[in-house]
């Protein structure tokens, strides 16, 4: 029983408009439970623009400022500045953006906020494409995945942008990956982010059943497979330098992850082998950064 989870206030309501099995509301609920009610949430264009409901409603019990697609970082900085000048520094500012609003169109303003080290918590819930507009590729779309703008005859080529490295390169005080499959780890990281002064960044893998072409019930399982197959390692970086891996992968071949999702249906054996090679390479690099051959984390 997750006693603390039960005690923490429910700041997301039922009745929101997320699709069945969406990772987005799971991530939001966990994050808000970790942050508490004294939080202001800035949401640029993303699925959550819709999920939270139309005027005159909201699915959150914290204030939301909806903002333009590319402005999450700047808008969060603005809220922070206004709070500080009013002596309301206790209030936390959460920028909540999708992968498009983070990796692509919002990268500049995120970089600006991170470079200024404004005291905000930036959470990117990453579903690896522009899902709200109907599954178009983003720079967070993985290598060779199908999207509506990278049809299976011509899937995306090239790696997913490594947003964590980009953020770590800013010497951001706290950068972490997290996943809806590991709620306690996610909440711990969001709490840690909130306790850390300056810009903090949490990159949350958040499956999209229609966009990934998976059953709605499979969301968490697929997210877990992403980590267990090392596609999406769970780790954190302090001050851009100190790396720590938090969940020990179960060493599952990437094929198992890929074959569970319709968006990878078209992959040939050579594609899978190539993806596996790249994953192994990236994992070795990450392990080197973590400078450890053991793990601090554990299986769930």
């Amino acid at each position: 029983m997750m006693t603390r989870f039960r005690e923490e206030e429910e700041l997301m309501t039922s009745g929101h408009l997320a699709c069945q099995g969406c990772g987005g509301p799971i991530a939001m609920r966990l994050a808000l439970k970790a942050l508490g009610e004294d939080t202001i949430c800035v949401i640029p264009a993303c699925c959550w623009t819709i999920i939270s409901g139309p005027f005159p409603y909201s699915a959150l019990k914290v204030p939301i400022m909806h903002t333009a697609f590319e402005t999450a970082g700047a808008a969060a900085s603005g809220v922070r500045a206004a709070l500080d000048i009013q002596g309301r520094s206790h209030t936390k500012v959460l920028a909540w953006a999708g992968d498009g609003g983070t990796f692509d169109i919002g990268l500049q303003s995120l970089s600006g906020a991170a470079e200024r080290n404004d005291d905000i918590i930036y959470i990117c819930y990453d579903n690896e494409a522009y899902m709200n507009t109907g599954v178009q590729r983003s720079s967070a779309t993985p290598d060779r995945a199908w999207t509506t703008t990278t049809p299976s005859g011509h899937p995306k080529r090239g790696p997913k942008k490594n947003i964590v490295e980009i953020m770590a390169a800013h010497k951001t005080p706290y950068v972490a990956t997290a996943s809806v499959a590991y709620p306690e780890d996610l909440m711990r990281k969001v709490r840690r982010a909130a306790e850390t002064r300056g810009t903090t960044f949490v990159h949350v893998l958040s499956p999209c059943p229609p966009g990934w072409r998976i059953d709605s019930e499979a969301s968490i399982r697929i997210a877990r497979l992403a980590t267990d197959s090392k596609v999406f390692p769970i780790y954190e970086v302090e001050n851009g330098e100190k790396y720590q891996i938090n969940v020990k992968p179960r060493d599952i071949p990437v094929a198992e992850y890929l074959k569970a999702q319709g968006r990878f249906n078209h992959l040939a054996a050579e594609d899978i082998a190539e993806i596996q090679r790249k994953i192994d390479h990236e994992w070795r690099r990450l392990m080197q950064k973590a400078m450890m051959d053991s793990y601090s984390g554990s299986h769930y």
């Binding site: 009745g15 005159p56 409603y57 699915a59």
Partner: peptide
């Protein structure tokens, strides 16, 4: 669900006046 009688009944800002719990998903 929240309903408005006329234009003057609306707030002049796009602001929420209630939660989404009316929406029985």
């Amino acid at each position: 669900r929240i309903t408005f009688q006329n234009v003057d009944d609306l707030p002049n800002v796009v602001v929420s006046l209630g939660t989404m719990e009316w929406n029985h998903t």
